[in-house]
Design a protein around this nucleic acid. Structure first.
Length: 163
DNA sequence: GTACCCTTGGGC
DNA sequence: GCCCAAGGGTAC
């Protein structure tokens, strides 16, 4: 596999109408919806191994379905950070646990940051941060940890403050 | 609590 | 061997 691969392998030209309802909000500066397609045989498969192996706790590796990945990817393209409520709602819709949903977004952010670092090694600041303002509703990937504080305005809408 | 970051280990 | 979900540490 190439080291300069994009975070997403293949492009979907349009969205199924059933998905539109899930991803209609939060316009963003990122590109069109994309999806890493899985083989059909993997559809709707979630592997679980609860047992321990020789006293060691065995990890459970979830394999997300095509549908789940489609919605997750599309949502991530539009919005890198979701509020607690948004995560819980989408997790419910996708039949995922909140923890799985949150972990996927975290891993995706890391993937995005690594990709940006590889592709914009010199000008990463210009991509990840705009020093002219400190508040943004849709923060892009940031270089430094602990930069984002989730807040709410008077109407209960989530937004993010950069520390 | 969630964030970032690195590591671990399973699936392909 | 690569990808990536999940575990775990640390910071706030």
């Amino acid at each position: 596999m190439s080291s300069v691969e994009t975070p997403y392998m293949e492009t979907i030209s349009h969205l199924p109408s059933s998905m539109d309802l899930l991803i209609q909000d939060s316009p963003n500066s990122f590109t069109s919806p994309r999806l890493k397609l899985l083989p059909a045989s993997i559809e709707e498969r979630t592997m679980k191994k609860e047992d321990t192996v020789q006293g060691k706790k065995q990890k459970i590796k979830t394999v997300f379905s095509q549908t789940q990945l489609y919605v997750l990817n599309d949502r991530f393209q539009r919005q890198k950070y979701l509020s607690l409520q948004q995560m819980q709602e989408l997790a419910n819709i996708l039949k995922l646990s909140y923890k799985q949903f949150k972990t996927w977004f975290q891993n995706q952010r890391m993937k995005c940051m690594r990709w940006q670092k590889n592709n914009y090694p010199k000008n990463s600041n210009s991509v990840t941060q705009n020093s002219s303002y400190k508040y943004t509703k849709y923060p892009l990937c940031l270089k430094n940890k602990k930069k984002i504080i989730l807040c709410k305005d008077g109407h209960g809408s989530p937004w993010w403050r950069l520390s």
